[in-house]
Design a protein around this nucleic acid. Structure first.
Lengths: 228, 228
DNA sequence: ACCTGAACACCGTTCAAGT
DNA sequence: ACCTGAACACCGTTCAAGT
């Protein structure tokens, strides 16, 4: 918002500014020109600290992955592979909730930044220490997939949630689709009714995330025991 | 490639052209001006069949979802909720392999096109017919998440695969990281060694997809039995 | 060394004009 | 009704020039 008064630019300040811009106005607002203006500088000045827009986007991913590492460290790693992995995925999710633009950005990048490999190495170490063979650990890494980065799946959201209030079809829309989508409408009504519990709301999608995570962890545990 | 000789434009021809352009030159190449040139027409002509670039992108998602429905129909639906769901996810994956740009596009869209709800309704119907309560079916829908659209998770790919030959770190890069990422390097070597089997290759990531899919379906089956 | 300003080749889109 | 061409407000980026 307020053009930063500092005179000295740096890669860190550029990336921090880009993160802030994406958080407040969305990823499309992250423009070399707009970012520069936000930093109180000319567009071309950015190129002294970042080689290109593409590199800026890579830096954005790097910054988010770094936040995940910090969040994991701050949450104090528990004992046992299952709890550690669970904790790491939930930490990652908290970071993604702070930066809703991050999942789409990360999956659109052609390659993951080198620092992300530290994150995967940590997961892999936890798995191997937990008794997984490399082969099964590899499968586990893929199975965890986007959960490992805490991706909030909004691919599907039929039930109005506090997470994304504006993007769901309203009750009126659902009523109009009722004959084409009978089960979807019935489910939405049934779930909305159950949600009288005030604890729910955004917690709802937290519960979905944990349900899926536990489903995967349970399955991986079973596969691990079978091969031991 | 060859500018279409047809004189008459239509929404269908515009969308088909956009899909073809994305397939051959990637999503960034899908530009109003370039798409128009590809269709042998002026940029502004497109606006008579599509209200905006944003609507064009929505149409692109719609086209891909439509292809998924067609692929499911073509594969002849098997008996039983588990086999039907499995078949549907694998069909979706085949479509996404044909359009590698689609997953990133879909997850970057603020909302899913109305036609996608037919896809989810079909999944939900299969679940309900299979004995799932609405509550558990809702969780299942979220758990299946991106698998339901056949997303090819390339978030993580430490082992060179035929899927994305250029994007992985080469053996040289891995050797350089060896001290920072011991397990990742060891795993990559171990897996590369096992892959002497000529059947593997792109099949490898097919196997990963099916492993994860079965992990989820097994877990959902267990949850279903518990609540019955 | 870092920052600037003008310039170039692109974008999406509006609008008045053509048929 | 559909298509066009010029124009406008934006992009990312090159380059020569300033300090």
């Amino acid at each position: 918002m307020t053009p930063a008064p500092h005179r000295r630019l740096s890669r860190e300040r550029v990336l921090a500014g880009a993160v802030r811009l994406a958080d407040t106005h969305g990823l499309p607002a992250v423009t070399m020109r707009r970012l520069a203006a936000d930093l109180g500088v000319e567009a071309m000045s950015l190129y002294h600290h970042v080689p290109s827009k593409d590199a800026l986007l890579d830096g954005l991913v790097e910054a988010v992955v770094g936040e995940v590492q910090a969040e994991v460290a701050a949450s104090g790693e528990p004992e046992g592979w299952r709890a550690r992995l669970r904790d790491r995925c939930l930490s990652a999710r908290r970071v993604m909730l702070r930066h809703p633009w991050a999942p789409a950005l990360i999956s659109s990048r052609p390659s993951v930044p080198p620092t992300a490999y530290l994150h995967y190495e940590a997961i892999l170490t936890t798995l191997v220490d937990g008794g997984f063979s490399y082969h099964l650990a590899h499968r586990a890494l893929h199975a965890l997939g986007s959960m490992a980065l805490g991706f909030v799946q909004e691919v599907f959201s039929p039930v109005p949630s506090a997470d994304a209030p504006g993007t769901d079809p309203g009750a009126a829309d659902l009523a109009r689709m009722a004959d084409a989508l009978p089960h979807l409408v019935a489910m939405a009504e049934s779930e909305a009714h159950d949600a009288g519990d005030p604890v729910l709301g955004w917690c709802d999608s937290q519960a979905e995330f944990e349900f899926t995570l536990d489903l995967l962890l349970d399955g991986l545990d079973r596969a691990r025991v079978l091969t031991t």
